[in-house]
Computed example of a mutant assay.
Amino acid sequence: MRDPVTDFEYPEAWVTACRSPDLLPDVRRGFAVLTASGTVLRRGFTTGTTAAAVCKAAVLSLSCETVDGVEVTLPCGITVRVPVDAYRGRASCWKDAGAYPSDATAGLEFVATAVPSLSGGVQFVPGEGIGSFGRNTRRHLQGTPAISAPALDCIRRSIDEAVEEAGLHGTTVILTVPRGAEVAQKTLNPKIGVHGGISVLGTTGFVEPWDDHVTEGVLDRIARAPRGVVLTTGRLGLRYSRLFFPDREAVLVGNHLSEALQAADGDTVICGLPGLILKFMNPNVLFGTGCATVEELSTTPQWEEVAGRELAAFLNRYPRVRVVIVDRDGRVIGESP
């Protein structure tokens, strides 16, 4: 059985050990993950998925008055049905975090208002509670809404689908998150220069239950990896880890590198984007650099010196751990000496 979100092939022993066989169809569809112990953990929806659902519902309710659920095709290609509450152009949707226990945005209400456009065309307007970048960075201009490209594509596609289904010539949709500014203070946004609200994100459209999963299934996979293991912190890192080290098992551990290294037996590789890796090596790595994020640091002339220093220090602490740091295009920008 294969996970359609990550392409991970579940061992038959895990399937046999499943404590809730009635939930295996959800695992096959990507709605949940199966751990080595047989426990099934439900995936949640990202802020991007929640935003797409509420915007689509607002538009659909212009033609059929009430809407209690909509289908959204996620960036990973899977279509899900999301509960909503929509009436005559105004919709609400509450973020479902699934089995992820530490999601600061769990249960947060998203609100969308849609009005027909007499002149045609579709306009999407991010409003109150959605953060914006406080300064120019390599990928974002100051004042740009903090909405990732995959999430924005999902939102726009969902609105377009609703316009066509409702038979409208066009619409304007305003998305707000009433408690967004308040909840954003519990996230990393203030530290990375995003102000005024939450970020709307979602590479796959799903929230992974990593806090539970890493202690139950992932650590066991790391310990039992037959030819060594590659630890990575995110989905892009997972993709490049599989490309660079095809003979090793690549395991996504999020921000649990410390626990993962303790579980590893034998030579280990850490491979992925620079953010979590450098922060793990040295939580104060940005001190004195003038940069707000490690990704920003990686684009400056300081990067080679800082990365080289941190990699050398890390090698002294973990002599059997090789580190390969890549950028978003898969280029190696840092490697253990």
Rank of each mutant, 00 (worst) to 15 (best):
R139K: 15
D68Q: 03
A263R: 03
A166T: 00
V194L: 02
D160L: 10
T268Y: 02
L60R: 08
E304F: 03
C271L: 15
D327Q: 04
N282K: 13
Y318C: 11
T39D: 08
R29P: 07
K56C: 09
T232C: 11
C55P: 05
G167E: 05
A91P: 01
A184K: 02
F245I: 13
I325H: 02
P283E: 09
A57I: 06
L297I: 12
D68S: 12
T39L: 09
V5E: 06
G202M: 04
R309C: 11
K186H: 05
Y100V: 14
A181K: 00
G334F: 07
R322P: 00
L201R: 07
G120P: 08
P178R: 11
W210L: 10
A181S: 01
H256D: 10
P337L: 13
A260C: 04
I192Q: 03
A114N: 07
A307V: 13
L276W: 05
L23S: 12
L23C: 05
V122D: 02
N255T: 09
G170L: 06
L231P: 04
T49H: 07
V251N: 01
A112G: 05
S199D: 00
D329W: 02
D265S: 14
G38R: 02
G143R: 04
A13T: 15
E335L: 10
L175Q: 10
V218H: 03
H140Q: 15
T289G: 06
G275E: 03
T113P: 01
E295V: 08
G121T: 06
T176L: 06
R138Q: 15
E182W: 03
C93N: 01
Y87W: 00
L276F: 08
G98M: 08
R139C: 13
T16R: 14
L24I: 15
V111P: 03
A112E: 10
V5P: 01
G129A: 04
V251C: 09
R239E: 03
I270G: 02
T300S: 09
R179V: 04
G205D: 02
R309P: 01
P83S: 09
D103G: 12
T35V: 04
A86I: 08
L278S: 11
D220P: 00
V229P: 04
Q123V: 15
T137N: 06
V207R: 06
D211T: 14
A32I: 06
T79W: 06
V306C: 14
E296S: 08
I155R: 09
G121S: 01
V59M: 07
G121Y: 00
A250F: 02
V5R: 05
Y100D: 15
G48V: 13
F287H: 05
Y240L: 06
R320A: 14
G131Q: 09
E128V: 11
A53F: 03
V230Y: 07
S61I: 04
G254I: 07
D153I: 00
L236A: 12
